[in-house]
């Protein structure tokens, strides 16, 4: 709320009733960023997030195949959605994907991140190598793993003691395991990066004090590192939840939602309804369900963890 940071070209707009008020609420002479700062981002958000969201909301009450004009059908799509067994199953599958993703990726990326924050020999080189999967596109990764997992000409053909007849993608359990594994391979580097940055921020004095008190490496990790990483863990978990809900390319290319509907998670179900069955109304309804669920989950995580209070983990230092 400031006049000092507003563009100079429009002094007239800054005058009028606002005149005479203190420059900022605290009365401090240092101004806080005004709304103008948020304008570019807000316009982008409105254009590319809010407007499509409203359009999707409107479409969910219509019947539209992409040809001609949408026809208003009231609540028909929504009623059908609640009776669709694939929809219900897809929600459970999405939840499973999120939980398994968090369970597999979080411990690994915390350990790697904390390790990468140190200054051991070869650390920079190894970190760079671990980082590579993040640089590849999801489509490339999926095609790569699809080829590697070919039952006759890929890894399973050579390792029958582990893969049996190689029908890895042909069973629901196998297909889910592959998707979780590929997700882990792809996204662990990203979360490692978050934890590496966070671990670097932990003041060394804490470790020095702990070692004087006789705490070993393991004790230091659990009593200092983990509590200090709390906010980063929350950030990372929220990203995993949202990422898990919107996982799509790997499912499309690796399993095509199969076997049967065995890996048809909600985001894939949405695509299938909209772009394969050309029922954009139902697809839009599923999209809205996804928006509501991901907002609710993120909100709950933020509330339950106390993240919204923005309490610093460095208080008292």
């Amino acid at each position: 709320m400031t006049t000092t940071l507003a563009p100079r070209r429009r002094p007239a707009r800054q005058g009028g009733p606002a005149e005479g008020r203190p420059a900022s609420r605290g009365g401090s002479s240092v101004g806080r960023p005004g709304f103008v700062w948020a304008l570019p981002a807000s316009i982008f958000f409105a254009l590319f997030a809010l407007v499509p969201l409203l359009a999707v909301a409107a479409l969910s009450f219509t019947s539209w195949s992409g040809l001609g004009d949408p026809k208003f059908v009231g609540l028909k799509n929504w009623e059908a959605l609640f009776e669709d067994p694939v929809m219900l199953q897809s929600l459970w599958l999405s939840l499973l994907f999120i939980v398994l993703g968090i369970v597999t990726q979080t411990p690994l990326s915390i350990l790697l991140g904390v390790w990468a924050a140190g200054n051991q020999r070869n650390r920079a080189i190894l970190s760079a190598i671990y980082f590579v999967p993040l640089l590849l596109s999801s489509a490339a990764i999926s095609v790569l793993w699809r080829a590697l997992l070919d039952p006759n000409f890929g890894i399973p053909g050579q390792m029958s003691w582990l893969f049996g007849d190689g029908n890895v993608l042909g069973t629901q359990t196998g297909a889910i395991a592959v998707l979780i594994f590929v997700g882990m391979w792809q996204f662990t580097p990203f979360h490692t990066l978050i934890y590496q940055g966070a671990a670097r921020q932990i003041p060394p004095v804490l470790y020095q004090a702990a070692s004087i008190d006789g705490a070993g490496t393991v004790r230091q990790f659990f009593s200092i590192t983990l509590p200090q990483l709390k906010n980063s863990i929350i950030t990372s978990v929220i990203l995993m939840v949202v990422g898990g809900l919107t996982t799509f390319e790997t499912v499309l290319i690796l399993t095509n939602g199969g076997p049967g509907t065995g890996t048809t998670i909600t985001a894939f179900h949405m695509y299938q309804e909209a772009f394969r069955r050309f029922d954009f109304g139902t697809g839009s309804a599923i999209a809205l369900v996804l928006v509501v669920i991901s907002t609710a989950i993120s909100f709950a995580v933020v509330r339950l963890s106390g993240y919204d209070k923005m309490r610093s983990s460095l208080e008292g230092l």
């Binding site: 039952p151 399973p156 007849d165 042909g170 069973t171």
Partner: peptide, 9 residues
């Protein structure tokens, strides 16, 4: 068709 045709494209 063998047992792993669901994994073959």
């Amino acid at each position: 068709f063998g047992t792993n045709f669901d994994s073959v494209k």
